[in-house]
Design a protein around this nucleic acid. Structure first.
Lengths: 236, 236
DNA sequence: CGCGGAGTACTTGTATACAAGCATCCGTAT
DNA sequence: ATACGGATGCTTGTATACAAGTACTCCGCG
């Protein structure tokens, strides 16, 4: 928790850039110029640069000294790592569920699921609800804060998921799986919840190779390859 | 993964400060001044400041705008979170062990264990070996890179471990547990490995309350409490 | 036409100057 | 003696100037 209490430009810019990267509005491989970003955002290089450093630590951007900064391409290895991490954590979390579930969180999850079933659900709305749903499950077992770490590590996975859903059918199948997991948990059937959770988490992951064949330019090939310096910074 | 290829002052300073915090040479609660650190290290504020921002994101330091920066006190909640995370990941890793273990890694682990059994083992050496041992286990199942994420998240846990061992007996019991885990793995007995691993990981954790009673000033009480501004920056 | 090299325009890394805010200490008034 | 207030010295946040290095462009030469 990089808590800088008072509102600072850096925090705002960090969150904004992070959002742009995760939503693919800043495409993998795109060149980022500290100067241009600073000019676009109406601030100096300092907060922009510090934000990029944080994003680099998360693996969302790559900074090559004296060369340039780039939105990192989706790295299949990092996607697999994030998949393993979240699966391990979320499954272990199910084993720590208390006998009496917190009714407030349960109600919140139920409301979340209701919104997921709305027919006019947009993609970004679904991702927000999905994120909140999984974090809520972690809170049920008292490990809500661990989700922060998982969330920080799964940037590559999230981008791959977005790629999959952008060119895929509706997220209806995932919504149904969410329901299944939730019902198993509230029904006290932990083994069933584990099975449903594992199935759910792997559903997205198994799609990645297909996506990669479809849009190879968004994926990393060699980890140390330097992207071309082109300014594709077009947004808003 | 924050790869800035060419050597930069920032990377060096970041690693140095991180080491000082994790080894408790910079005590929890100590005040850090960007200016003083810069002067001590012979550089300007910029690389120091950027390092502190990274450490803040890891939760190892806290930055209060216009007030000061402090080495974060050990937060029992974050220790518990890290414990849960590493246990989930390391146990799940055991389930992914291949039938044929990589002989190179196995040999490396064996050599590591031999060094752990040396009678003149220093504490810092033990911690280094311990870190390498657990990372090696993850590599056996092909999840070596995930250890990076776990390592980044377990800063508070590591500091608690050091506190425990500083005032505790020798790490001999942990070395024996390492051996037990290793033997179970090479013997192909995954269930036994899981049991041994869980026992091992919880051995340290269960000691924390005792340590806390002994040195309460190093632990956080209220998450939002601002430490006193005193310059105890004494090292080397 | 092909190729090489100097110039140039960009990049990030670092240092420094200034801005804004908090805390403490000290002097003054009550 | 005590309460209040302003000066002062610290802090981090931001902006900017400069340094070092890469890559591309373009012109001249073979």
């Amino acid at each position: 928790m990089a808590q800088t209490n008072g509102r600072t430009n850096r925090r705002d810019i960090y969150l904004k850039l992070r959002q742009l990267v995760l939503t693919l509005e800043l495409a993998p491989g795109a060149a980022l110029s500290e100067n241009e970003l600073a000019a676009s955002l109406g601030v100096s290089r300092t907060p922009v640069r510090e934000s990029l450093i944080l994003l680099a630590q998360e693996g969302l951007v790559q900074v090559f000294p004296k060369i340039g900064s780039f939105v990192s391409r989706v790295d299949p290895a990092q996607v697999a790592d994030a998949q393993f991490l979240r699966e391990a954590v979320e499954l272990a979390s199910l084993d720590d569920l208390p006998a009496a579930l917190d009714p407030a969180v349960v109600g919140e999850l139920r409301a979340n699921l209701d919104r997921q079933r709305r027919s006019d659900l947009g993609l970004e709305e679904f991702f927000d609800l999905d994120e909140a749903f999984h974090q809520g499950l972690m809170r049920l077992s008292g490990h809500g804060n661990v989700w922060t770490t998982v969330a920080a590590a799964k940037g590559h996975l999230d981008r791959a998921r977005r790629l999959g859903l952008h060119e895929n059918e509706s997220p209806a199948v995932f919504v149904a799986q969410h329901r299944e997991i939730f019902d198993a948990i509230t029904g006290g059937n932990v083994p069933l919840a584990r099975t449903a959770m594992r199935t759910h988490l792997r559903a997205v992951f198994d799609d990645i190779e297909r996506i990669r064949a479809h849009s190879p330019e968004l994926f990393a090939t060699d980890a140390s390859s330097v992207p071309v310096r082109r300014n594709i910074v077009v947004w808003e």
